[in-house]
Amino acid sequence: MRITQGTFSFLPDFTDEQISAQVQYCLDNGWALNFEYTDDPHPRNTYWEMWGIPLFDIADAAGVMMELAACRKVHAGTNYIRMTAFDSSHGWESIRLSMITDRPAHEPGFMVERQEQAGRRIAYTTRAYVTTRPAGERYT
């Protein structure tokens, strides 16, 4: 399967040039970009690991792409990497765009566990198959 979190998951994976264009769009809007990575793709795993702090005061996408290259060198293949854009303006003060730039070659997906309860109710648990293995050994 292919997890479809993020702004652009239904399009073919972006080339560096295409990522760079999105980066520039964010920079032109005054948003700070940050890369994050994880090997736990659960939809409610909010806090992926931060690759450094958000990149403030960058003018050109090339500066941000340097950081993506550095992050990829360490985490590509064994982790999902996503790029997040933060808008600090009043009334928003949150994320404006969030896209997956890198994903592991094989994505095993999730299983749904159903716990039957009284009155036909079912308690659902979503579990990523990879998380049966310890962190750091999941996509190797």
């Binding site: 399967m1 997890i3 479809t4 979190q5 793709p41 659960h42 939809p43 409610r44 997906g109 999730f110 299983m111 749904v112 036909r120 109710r121 079912i122 659902y124 979503t126």
Partner: peptide, 18 residues
């Protein structure tokens, strides 16, 4: 409600999205 929530949870697991 019961059938809809089965659908929601299953779709969530199939896509990894909320």
């Amino acid at each position: 409600f019961l059938y809809v929530m089965e659908a929601v949870n299953k779709a969530q697991a199939e896509t990894g999205e909320v």
